[in-house]
Nucleic acid binder design. Structure first.
Lengths: 385, 385
DNA sequence: CACTCTTGGAGAAACGTATCTCCAGGGGCT
DNA sequence: AGCCCCTGGAGATACGTTTCTCCAAGAGTG
């Protein structure tokens, strides 16, 4: 077996120090070839169980860890997927819906890990060298703007891209989004049924899909039912501006008797503004806001919220992406006939496959005229309806 | 120049399809050698500017992107650092202080990107193959428990490890933490000055550094000033349990007249519990809780919070880690003589260098007997004192 | 016996880059 | 003229895997 032990003949004469054991060292120590070690460790090839376990034992003893870089280079798979948030302003992270993003990222990370992938967060505005230095098997993009050059380049170079938020003109492998129009219409209907006569909207100035579709749905509804739109806009990434806009909305001469706020902090801001103007919620003002935070279960009064179900979205997006990477449809419930990396899809085959995820309206006291309970109740866990 | 154009002689006879351009293609197209391309693009070697720019132009034209995997294999640097949260329970992510973690991770991501690194979130409980499949230049570990096998192995294999939270027995390259004892003592003093006679504590059952040090500081203070400890514990990762524990604390016969809650939701939970028992805040009950959320600026009344300054911690931790990776002390303000990867440090050289970061007490109405303003005030941005 | 499978495994070629070594040639200096 | 240094750049090797190809020897089969 001296031949086998000597087969790493390329190694220079200088003895290595305390470097990590490589596959060659394992092969030498086990008296087999590199091929055998690789096969034994990866469960491939045709080897008797005895050899397999012996090799594994030797590898364990030497503390062998395969080099991720070498494996990636050889196989073309890094096990890494990117999570990109397209930044609008100058801020490094412009999370219009912060809790939403946190939840979504958490779910995405979990889903990725569950399938053996790791997630790396990469704002689109990152230095180009960071983007170029990382081998990504695919990318999730949150709400890409039209003609995003980053997305286009990724797509062109064959990296699967799945977007959270229906993409405008970007070519993506697939996308997932809420049905924002349905959600807004549902809320408006809910408020109308609770007795609202004039519903106002607190919305954002940015042009992302969420803001745009929601606002359009509101305006469309107003046109349909014949109500004059009553809304205020503000830059959603600026928390201070939100409080001011909430105040502005309630200070209007045509003050609404119900408000839907598109962003997370709108609930507390509107509540504070209402308090300043002596408006009782829900008696004088019905309130709903879009939020993933459960602080609204314990405010006074508790506030009805719309959840965009970020966990479901994050999970779905990642699963779609990994399906595309692996060329498999693992049955995520999406009725996509073919979901392959872009190089396999004929150009002009129509829009990329998309999925609409449902939202959830969590009804609390702020949107019901008759407050369900005003008596002191025994302690109960928050989050309950 | 046919020799140069033909130097990729190893390429098989079959013509490649539409694969990405490699460095060889650029070399051939520019009529230079691979060496020259590499040097030109990386700003190394001695080349006239003319050659350099010509090569760059050709590379650009071909859409050349260097292979991250190959570069990593060659240089031993991946540009990736891990962010590990050690999980205590069965949950994939047990963030005892969720907003804290989110902020910290955000700052860490920014800091890393600013120095050309990307961050990968990897729970310690991830499948081993995920850990093994990723080339990490270093790792940030959040609050590692004593004898964490993961940290030990990382350290042994020469990967720099910097921990957020003073490590128990784990060998780490460096660590950063708040001065939890000083923070708690400061709060107790603050409450005492506001007139508290019996201060209670809402704390957790887990054994992480934060919980342990804070609780010990409280107990030590009680012993010193001769107050009987009044505290309740609950599993911090369970939000429902927090509300119950808050209620339990206020239901005690020896009900405290001031409470400090260690975790983010404690403020609202305690406020709700106080309301149930008819206790006015701050008149009957002084309240402080540790939180990074600014919802406490708009609660009724606003609640005094302790901020652990997660952004500073995240930034510092990442900078220390990258300093260690690059073998540089970039002047993060930490007085560490030597901060090198473990293989350069002699064993038994004493404890790893640590840094204590200050905390910040944001005083609001809930911890001041005389509420500063009870009149209706004009709208102002949240977050203001 | 002559052959075809099957088993167990070895050899070597990539993957794409960075970098060490070395070389040709020209100009300045003695 | 002879020598040295400097410039511009080419060649080759190594990074550590995975995997394709191929081979030897034994086992079955006609």
């Amino acid at each position: 077996m001296t031949a086998a032990a000597n087969q790493s003949g390329r190694r220079p004469t200088t003895s290595r120090r305390l470097e990590r054991a490589g596959i060659r060292d394992v092969a030498a120590a086990a008296g087999v070839s590199i091929t055998t070690v690789s096969d034994a460790l990866n469960g491939k090839g045709r080897l008797p169980d005895e050899t397999r376990s012996r090799v594994r034992e030797v590898a364990e003893r030497l503390g062998y860890r395969p080099s991720a870089a070498a494996r990636t280079l050889r196989t073309g798979r890094s096990g890494l997927i990117g999570l990109t948030v397209t930044t609008y302003g100058e801020e490094p992270f412009t999370f219009t819906e912060f809790a939403y993003f946190a939840e979504m990222a958490r779910a995405a990370t979990s889903a990725a890990l569950g399938r053996g992938y790791a997630l790396v967060v990469l704002p689109a505005s990152s230095r180009h060298d960071v983007w170029g230095n990382i081998a990504l098997d695919g990318t999730v993009v949150i709400d890409p703007p039209d003609q995003d050059p980053l997305v286009s380049e990724l797509y062109r170079s064959g990296v699967p891209v799945v977007s959270d938020g229906k993409p405008g003109n970007c070519p993506v492998t697939a996308w997932v989004d809420n049905d924002h129009e349905a959600a807004v219409l549902g809320i408006l209907e809910h408020l109308s049924e609770a007795g609202a006569r004039r519903i106002g909207l607190l919305t954002g100035t940015s042009t992302d899909t969420y803001t745009r579709l929601s606002t359009e749905a509101y305006l469309g509804w107003c046109a349909k039912v014949g109500q004059e739109p009553v809304y205020e806009t503000y830059p959603a990434h600026d928390p201070a501006a939100g409080a001011v806009a909430a105040d502005r909305l309630l200070a209007r001469p045509d003050r609404p008797d119900a408000v839907y706020g598109l962003f997370d902090p709108n609930g507390t801001d509107l509540l504070a503004a209402a308090r300043r103007y002596g408006l009782r919620v829900p008696d004088d003002l019905l309130l709903v806001c879009c939020s993933e935070s459960d602080v609204y279960a314990t405010t006074e009064p508790p506030i009805t919220t719309l959840s965009l179900k970020p966990r479901k979205i994050g999970t779905t997006v990642v699963n779609l992406l990994i399906d595309a990477i692996e060329g498999v449809d693992s049955g995520t419930g999406v009725d996509i006939a073919r979901l392959f990396p872009p190089r396999f899809r004929t150009a002009g085959t129509g829009p990329p496959p998309g999925t609409l995820m449902p939202t959830e309206l969590i009804v609390r006291a702020s949107s019901q005229r008759r407050s369900p309970r005003t008596t002191v109740s025994p302690p109960r866990p928050p989050g309950e309806v």
